[in-house]
Design a protein around this nucleic acid. Sequence first.
DNA 1: CTCGGCCCCCTACCCGGGTAGGGGGCCGAG
DNA 2: CTCGGCCCCCTACCCGGGTAGGGGGCCGAG
Lengths: 226, 226
Amino acid sequence: MTIRVIIVDDQAMVRAGFAALLAAQSDIDVVGEAPDGRKGVEVSRTVHPDVVLMDVRMPEMDGLAAARELLAPPVGVVHRPKVLMLTTFDVDDYVYEALRAGASGFLLKDAPPADLISAVRVVAAGDALLAPSVTRRLIADFARQRPAAPSGGPALRLNGLTPRETEVLELIARGLSNQEIAARLVLAEQTVKTHIGRVLAKLGLRDRAQAVIFAYESGLVTPGDA
Amino acid sequence: MTIRVIIVDDQAMVRAGFAALLAAQSDIDVVGEAPDGRKGVEVSRTVHPDVVLMDVRMPEMDGLAAARELLAPPVGVVHRPKVLMLTTFDVDDYVYEALRAGASGFLLKDAPPADLISAVRVVAAGDALLAPSVTRRLIADFARQRPAAPSGGPALRLNGLTPRETEVLELIARGLSNQEIAARLVLAEQTVKTHIGRVLAKLGLRDRAQAVIFAYESGLVTPGDA
DNA sequence: CTCGGCCCCCTACCCGGGTAGGGGGCCGAG
DNA sequence: CTCGGCCCCCTACCCGGGTAGGGGGCCGAG
């Protein structure tokens, strides 16, 4: 019995590469592809794959939203595939969001090809799977986790940032100074500093330069949307 | 007569994907792989491929340096492959550097797979090739080109940055402090400040946070390659 | 040779950004 | 109601980062 897989990634080359890689396995069939989350959901609901390989960052609908859609389907939809998230970076909040959404696994794209193949098999079999580096981070996070949101916390914010903090972070990532941010948000500059201080603390960053990096790496901001 | 190709890219998954893609063509043989420029040069000198698929950004020796090495071989080395550069972004200076080094082509990684395959064939046949978006940018650049470097200028640098300045900029974009950059490059912290000052002035930026933004927006640094 | 570009280093200075440690009001959950 | 989270604001302080304006050596082009 073959494992039916679809690949959702915005880069056609990546899709083709993965498809070729997986299709070479006798027990795996690539039965569909999609370039973004929204189309990925559609394709999944049409072909009913066992496993969805899902990129995190994509246009239209990102991988996390698509995963949530697939894993908590509306009434009437019975099919529920396993979702294996793919990413090039191991940012914790993605992991948390994805796991919370019910994803079966999280794999870094630069993992050895053999890992991808076995990951598909493991996930198809119903097991969970995390890349070693992700696991490491996960454990580290839990270790130093102050019992913040007790349980069933309100929402998924970027690493536990409040809306205001996220807003400030984005303006930092646009290159604004504290003064400019204050003007833009109609706040005292001190308040801006306070927000930034909390952002840096929550994310474990040193300064606004690292904050900019985080914003890009986490997808809060994307090259070209300046 | 098959086209012998080697793939030089730091991500094993990418190599495997491309290899699978190309190997499926009856007229193309993948005869080697390497994870960085230096090893790529070695492999090329060993297996004498017709075409080298070369990623731009890699550890140890980047794709541009490796391309120069292969295309201007030291005396005694006779083999001279075609080099097809691969990149995820279309930054002008990379294009210029690669073309000046004698690369046969420049392809964006997110091009359709069919393009990659035909690109290999085109290049192997001795023709040059640029991705459409690269061509567009190339023309646009020439169009609005102030007669800066009058002719045959020294080199192609990111917006007129010297190699050292570019190096410093990249470290800023990695989140390093001035002190850390100084340690990394074995410089006085003051020297680092001097370089940064010039970078900011040349690029019209205010501070290192904006420098980080520039690095991402220009493609000097890409989300995911942290 | 001279000259220009690059690289490295320096002193002196200041300000923006970040830290530490406060306070108050609002609001939804329990 | 109380309590916790969030948001906004404050003083005080300091240091990293950035500016201004120097200097010297190397090297390739002319």
